[in-house]
Amino acid sequence: MTALLKVENLVTEFGGSSAKPGLRAVNDVSFSVERGKVLGLVGESGSGKSVTGFSIMRLLEKPGRIAGGRVIFDGADIANCSEEEMRRLRGKRIAMVFQDPTMTLNPVLTIGTQMVEAVRAHENVTKDVARQRSRDALARVGIPSPEERLSAYPHQFSGGMRQRVAIAIALLHKPDLIIADEPTTALDVTIQSQIISEFQKLTEESNTAVIWITHDLAIVSRLADDIAVMYAGRLVETGPVTKVLTDPHHPYTAGLIASVPSQNRRGEPLRQIRGMTPAINRLPQGCSFRTRCDRVTDGCLVMPPLLLEEDRSFRCIHPVLKETA
């Protein structure tokens, strides 16, 4: 089966030009997602995971730009297609859900207006038909009395409800791919759980592929088929979730897993990875994780390549192996 989305050696820079490199927020990132599969894109703040998502959508804020690589969506390179072609894909075949539901919806327009315009951006239908469709979409994500809610404004909804609206908008055109950028981070834990279940159900029904960007490994283990771990703009480990989470090879992945509080015993101090994510303009030479790693040697002064092992890969010359972990 060919992948629906194939990201090949994606490089995203802020500032700079074709002659002079800018700050590399995403550096040589490659992964693929198949129809109906969920990829968990994991990393700390500033690792470049959100920028990767916006690069695929081509919604980078200036001076951000895709400086290299290809994004193959359903056989066509969308990193280099025209702006109008890209617009026709957005919302129609590739949708996105954002992190903060209180900021995603325009405060001065009704939910109805914002949904109807999304329908009519891609389909030549009357307002009434579009409204009907929007109402059904709201009902599908579990919003009570959807007809009334269409005339309401975003501030009249709770955070969880707003995220449901955003998800309903993302699902309006039954997209092939949804990029979910930490859609539950800003929500209460109970609401998080509900939203994830709804999301899972709806995307499974329509066989939609999902890139779920998050820093929460618990969500990834529950939701994703594959995982890609990013650190300082690069992929450090990829593979099937079951394998990577039970048997991480990169010390950073291992550290992340160890930092999940439920891994600790009661009374034990919480484990953490020492140090902080380096700023992308001050990365150490060689392996970016070198300065925070316990296994560092002189060999780490050279950036290691992604090492392949069956269906997974990792970027480390001193991998954590299960026997030694």
Binding site: M57, L59, E61, R87, R88, L89, R90, G91, K92, A95, M96, F98, D100, M103, T104, L105, N106, P107, V108, L109, Q114, E117, A118, A121, H122, A166, I169
Partner: peptide, 29 residues
């Protein structure tokens, strides 16, 4: 730079509508 402008673009709206409706109505206040 607001998220809702980005989201409007992510919905596939034409740039003209993003500016004339989403941006303009907010800055008119």
């Amino acid at each position: 730079p607001q998220d809702y402008v980005k989201f409007a673009r992510a919905k596939g709206l034409r740039e003209r509508r993003v500016i004339a409706v989403h941006v303009l109505k907010n800055l008119m206040i």
